[in-house]
Computed example of a mutant assay.
Amino acid sequence: MKLDMVLKEVHHGENALAVRLMRRSSTHTTDHEVHHVARDLAAWSRHHVREPADAASDHGVDLSPEPKTAQAARDQELLDLTERCHPQTLRQQRWANTMIKVVSPQVLTS
């Protein structure tokens, strides 16, 4: 597995998630839980975008469309990065799953 591909995918996915969460937040201004929690989760995603970008540059990986190749190796800095981001990522996942369970019956019956 190429490190540059993994870092690019994480970067892309977190960017996309942050955009979608902010969009969802702005369309649900009257539902305070969705509005505020989505904004908090989007902020976490923006933070998660910066850290992999920093790690990528440390490994010579350009997150632009034409990345340089990086050597995949056991790297304590990258392991630390995943340990820092993982709890927030799990929280984002749990919140999204909960919202699906709460909203899906309303959508199906409307």
Rank of each mutant, 00 (worst) to 15 (best):
H48N: 08
T27Y: 14
Q88E: 00
E77H: 14
D80A: 12
L7E: 00
L3H: 01
Q92D: 06
P105C: 00
E51K: 13
L63Q: 02
G13H: 11
L90C: 10
V107A: 14
R94K: 12
A56Q: 01
H11Y: 13
H59V: 00
V61T: 05
V6N: 06
H28Q: 10
A73E: 08
Q106N: 15
N15I: 08
Q88V: 01
G60V: 03
V49M: 02
H11C: 02
T27C: 11
S26Y: 15
Q76T: 11
I100P: 01
T98Q: 12
P67L: 00
R91D: 00
D80S: 14
V37T: 11
V49R: 05
A55C: 09
S104K: 15
W44H: 09
V10C: 05
T109E: 14
G60N: 02
R46C: 09
V103N: 13
V37D: 05
A43Q: 06
T82E: 10
R91G: 05
P52Y: 03
S25A: 09
V49S: 04
E66V: 13
D75W: 02
S26F: 15
H35N: 10
H28G: 06
S57E: 10
H59C: 07
E83K: 14
D58T: 08
A72I: 07
H11K: 04
Q93K: 13
W95A: 02
M1R: 11
V107T: 14
D31K: 05
E51R: 14
D40L: 10
K68E: 07
Q88H: 07
H11G: 00
R74S: 14
V6E: 06
K8E: 02
R94V: 06
A18Q: 07
M22P: 08
R50W: 13
L90N: 09
Q106K: 15
S45H: 03
V61E: 01
T69M: 11
A16K: 15
T89M: 07
E66Y: 15
K101T: 06
Q93T: 09
P52T: 03
R39A: 07
D62M: 12
K68Y: 13
E66K: 15
A56L: 04
R20Q: 12
V6K: 09
D58P: 10
L3C: 02
M99C: 07
L3Y: 01
T89N: 07
L41H: 05
D31C: 05
M1T: 08
K2H: 13
L3N: 04
Q71Y: 11
P87T: 03
H86Y: 10
L41A: 04
A73W: 02
K68V: 06
L108E: 13
T98F: 13
Q76W: 13
R46G: 07
A42Y: 04
T89Q: 08
R84W: 06
G60D: 01
T109G: 12
S26R: 14
R94C: 03
H11A: 04
D75I: 04
Q76S: 14
D80F: 09
R24V: 07
H12W: 07
T30I: 07
L21H: 01
R23F: 12
E9F: 05
H59W: 06
P67I: 03
L63M: 09
P65T: 06
L3E: 03
D31R: 02
V61L: 03
T98Y: 13
T98L: 11
S26N: 12
W95T: 00
V10S: 01
A72W: 05
R91F: 09
K8M: 02
R91V: 00
L21W: 00
D4I: 03
L78P: 02
